[in-house]
Amino acid sequence: MRNVLITGGSRGIGLAIARRLAASGDYNAVAVARRESGELAAAIREAKQRLHFRACDLAVTEATSLFARSVRDEFGPIYGLVNNAGIGTDGLLATMHNSEIETLIRLNVLSPIILTKYVARQMMADGAGRIVNISSIVASTGYNGLSVYAASKAAMVGFTRSLAREVGRVGITVNAVAPGFVDTELTKSLDEKDRRRIVGRSALRHLPGVDDVASVVEFLLGEGGRNITGTVVTVDAGSTA
């Protein structure tokens, strides 16, 4: 059974990924978040030992190395890492508090980079692995009020491409997935008018769901993803087409 670590696996897109991987029968999914949600607890009960929760505040990067080691000690070699945890604080740059900017950049950029460092070196020791970073279409399009968030998501794309070059020789693939707007906690501040506008602009006239993102992650982790690395897969129902 291949172990896959999914950060932010307690709700939204991360939970959908964790659930889907556990249900596939090919993976042992370890969902990481600060708190276990009721939804995740229910999914764990259904998943028959294939889905687990481990608490970790990923913003505390001093503890990341120990956390990565404890997961390996408990579950064995980690085959897949899905860097999905993130926050979507919006606001005009001119009035955003510096502490909010720092918190966002820390969790969305610094945390996944440092976690990847420790997990990738385990993968290097093992000679195989798959890394998937959850970016966003906002990394390459523009959205009013999301400049800091967009910067963090674009950072993941740059990270993905260069890391793919760095670890390709040891059999590790690194890719990013860029979802369009998906209904989750993270996007609940968007009002109905904006939401309708996004739907209206998408080629398919609807929004992608969390499971659409999860199925792409499953593909990248699976056999079909073996020769895909250093790229970005967009899942946005044609919003950016």
């Binding site: 070196r121 290097m124 020791a125």
Partner: peptide
């Protein structure tokens, strides 16, 4: 540098320490 990265990672597995971290 990649070979050294692999070395440090394997030694961490084997010896339980990474002096460079």
């Amino acid at each position: 540098s990649l070979a050294f990265a692999i070395l440090v990672a394997r030694l961490e597995d084997e010896l339980g320490v990474d002096p460079f971290t």
